[in-house]
Structures are given as C-alpha cells and as structure tokens.
C-alpha cells in the first residue's frame, strides 16, 4: 500500500494538522510516513498545503507532482491541484466557496459539505476532521483504532477531552461524503 495525498486550503482550516493526524495514525498502523508542508510566502498569503505519504515501504521523495488523492478546500487550490491527481485517483472537495467545480471525468470526485456540517455540529474547529472522515470513507487505509491513537499523539494532552468530538466529526464526514463522479 502506498497513498500519496495533497491537502490544500486556507490557513486556519486545519490543513496541516489534518495531515499530521493522518501521518501519526499511519505510524500507529506501522506504516512509513512523510509530511511535507508548504511554508513559504504562499502560506503567509493565506493558502496552505501539505503532502502526506503513507506507505508499507520506505518512502523516497517527499516532494511530488502527482497524487493519488487531492483534498481541496478552496478555489486557489482547485486551480492548482485538480490536474495533479493521477488518472484513476480521487479528488475530495468542499463545494463551499468553490466557483469552478472539478471537470475531470477520469478520476473519482467527491464532495463534502464540511463547513455546513461543522456548523451543524456547533463546532467550526471540527471542520478538518469532517473532511478527513470523508477521505477515510473513500480510502479506508487506516483503522479507526489507529486514527484515535494518532489523534491522541497529535493533540496536546490538555485538549484530549475533545477526542470524542473529533471522532464524532470523522463519523459525520464518513456519512455525508457524496460521490459526484465514480470511475
């Protein structure tokens, strides 16, 4: 198993921390992982992205041009990464704020209304876990048990009372993900 993921959106949406939780969960499942963030001026300008690779084998390049999965949370990232998904790959996006929806027919396209769902849950901070749940529904590469372990490792101990809320949000994402184009 080797899964190469790009997660891209605005700073503050929890892009980097979602990547970290995925990577840590990968370690808990005895996988090799890399997590490579954008840290340049683009981040300071408001957009953030991170490349996460989870693999059974040693990982070579942490820097990639093509991905198995793109998780896209704003229009700038859609413009940049829609065409970086490998043919046959997966694109998940939050339609909120997207003006030009993905047009590719050679990949699976899913929508997750994470902004709306996090508002319904009454906690905007669960946004990224809803998105992560959508991803894990489509690509069940990690067990829920290891994801909870990964969460515990990634979140400071003082916030461990929020693990349940995060787990619930992951479940919401799994339930609410909509497949728009299936290949």
């Amino acid at each position: 198993m080797k899964e190469e993921i790009i997660i891209a959106g605005f700073g503050g949406q929890g892009v980097l921390s979602m990547g970290k939780i995925l990577a840590y969960s990968g370690i808990m499942q005895d996988k090799e992982v890399t997590w490579m963030p954008s840290y340049g001026p683009e981040m300071r300008g408001g957009t953030a992205n991170v490349t996460v690779i989870i693999s059974d084998n040693k990982i070579s390049s942490p820097v990639l041009a093509k991905f198995d999965t793109a998780i896209i949370l704003n229009q700038q990232s859609m413009d940049k990464f829609e065409h970086a998904v490998k043919s046959g790959g997966l694109l998940i996006y939050d339609p909120n704020g997207i003006t030009r929806h993905p047009a590719r027919r050679d990949i699976t396209v899913c929508a997750i209304e994470a902004a709306d769902e996090s508002a319904k849950l009454g906690n905007a901070k669960t946004y990224n876990m809803i998105v992560m749940g959508a991803f894990l529904k489509m690509k069940p590469i990690l067990s829920m048990e290891n994801i909870i372990k990964g969460l515990k490792k990634s979140i400071p101990e003082r916030n461990h009372h929020l693990i349940n809320a995060n787990e619930q949000a992951i479940g919401t994402g799994m339930d609410k993900v909509k497949i728009l184009n299936k290949i």
Binding site: K20, W35, M36, P37
Partner: peptide
C-alpha cells in the same frame, strides 16, 4: 535544507 528541516517523519 528547507525540505529536510520542515518535513515530518518518524
């Protein structure tokens, strides 16, 4: 370099 410094691995 910035890649090795900024990336996370186990």
């Amino acid at each position: 370099d910035g890649v090795i410094g900024q990336m996370m691995e186990k």
